[in-house]
């Protein structure tokens, strides 16, 4: 405050002996201080934003191990991973063949079946429709499986094939494949 008063008081008579220079220095200080303050504030916001990201206890539950031995050929099971359903299917040879044959079909989100299943007889996918997050039907016997014998989302009518690829409807992407790894022939770790 006192600076301002001083500068305006000395402004007119001191213009000849470097008064203008004083203005520039003051401008620089003001700009530098404001910029420093703004950058500091931006850094201070980050902890608030990041605190809303998944916390350590949520992340700790982010991988599970599944015993595959009780799943018969042609059977589909659902396991819970990160609060979301994961579809595991023990595919029959006929289903694998159908999926491979469709590799060349006109796909909405082109992907080869061998890129979607590390071991062709085991299809492991996140069971969340890529449209708006509904759970597609087809896991239980008697539920509609859609036109390609895979899954069908009842919310807005998306059809997925035996490789979990989107074939028809508003969903833009195939059912996502989670990170997973076979620990043995009958145990898989998801996440």
């Amino acid at each position: 405050m006192s600076d301002t008063v001083e500068s305006s008081a000395s402004g007119a008579p001191g213009a000849a002996d470097g008064g203008e220079e004083g203005e520039t220095r003051r401008d620089f200080l003001l700009l530098a201080t404001t910029a420093f303050g703004a950058v500091g504030a931006a850094f201070a916001i980050w902890p608030f934003v990041d605190s809303m990201n998944p916390s350590a206890d949520v992340l700790a539950l982010s991988s599970i191990e599944v015993d595959l031995s009780p799943i018969a050929k042609g059977q589909r099971i659902t396991v819970k991973w990160r609060g979301a359903p994961v579809f595991i299917e023990h595919r029959t040879q006929a289903q694998i063949d159908a999926a491979r044959k469709d590799d060349k079909a006109d796909l909405i989100d082109p992907q080869l079946d061998k890129d979607r299943a590390k071991r062709p007889e085991w299809l492991i996918m996140v069971g969340i429709c890529t449209h708006l997050g509904c759970i597609p039907l087809g896991q239980k016997s008697g539920q509609p499986k859609g036109e390609w014998g895979g899954w069908f989302c009842p919310c807005h009518g998306s059809h997925y094939d035996t490789s979990g690829r989107i074939r028809k409807g508003p969903a833009p992407k195939n059912l996502p494949i989670p990170e997973y790894e076979f620990l043995s022939d009958t145990v898989v770790r998801i996440g």
């Binding site: 934003v49 809303m52 990201n53 998944p54 916390s55 949520v58 982010s62 990160r82 609060g83 979301a84 969340i128 708006l132 997050g133 509904c134 919310c155």
Partner: peptide, 27 residues
Amino acid sequence: TVITNLFSAIPLIGDQIVTWLWGGFAV
């Protein structure tokens, strides 16, 4: 689920935003 998933339509960072909104990997 449906409304927060609307944000996944944002190109490139949509999925991160949704995870951030949820504070997890699902509602």
